[in-house]
Simulated assay, not measured.
Amino acid sequence: MAFSTAGRTGPLADINVTPLVDVMLVLLIIFIVTAPIVTRPIPLQLKQPTDRPLVQPEPPPPIALRLDASNQLSWNGTPIAMAELLPRMQEQASVHAGNLPELRIATDEGAEYEGLVKILAAAEAAGMQRVAFER
């Protein structure tokens, strides 16, 4: 390939784009070849539409637990011992299986953290799924 300076003196300042075009074409061919290999179908099991309406049972009344400053625990306003908490929660979980009541926990500012930890541990052991914290 001959280059003509056509009366110019000094070096040529034009950029030779031929190697750039060659590299870009090679990359384009590589991407065209590898793109179908990368895509794979993902199997999904989607729910099928039904004509019957969904029946959602009404949720049971929430359980209000309160821990006061003297670390006395109350269940819906009735004082109970900390040892009675887990059996009562398990009883509620078995009575309302599949539709567990919401557990609303409130503590006084002077309550010990250990009491709250025991309440949360009992809720987890009983399988309570809906827990709310109140003031």
Rank of each mutant, 00 (worst) to 15 (best):
129 Q>R: 14
18 T>D: 11
102 E>W: 05
73 L>P: 00
71 N>E: 06
98 G>R: 10
29 I>F: 14
79 P>K: 02
82 M>K: 00
91 E>V: 00
27 L>Y: 07
60 P>R: 03
104 R>P: 00
42 I>E: 10
119 I>G: 05
8 R>N: 10
116 L>N: 10
77 G>K: 02
36 P>C: 01
122 A>E: 01
75 W>M: 00
28 L>R: 03
57 P>S: 11
63 I>G: 01
123 A>I: 00
38 V>F: 11
119 I>S: 01
131 V>K: 14
55 V>Q: 14
10 G>D: 09
81 A>N: 09
5 T>R: 12
27 L>M: 15
131 V>Y: 02
90 Q>W: 06
99 N>I: 06
13 A>W: 09
66 R>F: 05
39 T>W: 12
15 I>N: 07
27 L>G: 14
14 D>F: 09
81 A>M: 07
19 P>I: 09
52 R>W: 03
117 V>T: 12
90 Q>G: 13
121 A>L: 13
16 N>P: 02
54 L>Q: 12
22 D>F: 10
31 F>E: 07
11 P>H: 00
93 A>H: 08
119 I>N: 04
104 R>M: 07
34 T>D: 08
132 A>S: 15
82 M>I: 06
49 P>S: 12
3 F>C: 08
126 A>T: 03
87 P>W: 07
5 T>K: 12
106 A>W: 04
100 L>H: 03
42 I>R: 10
64 A>T: 07
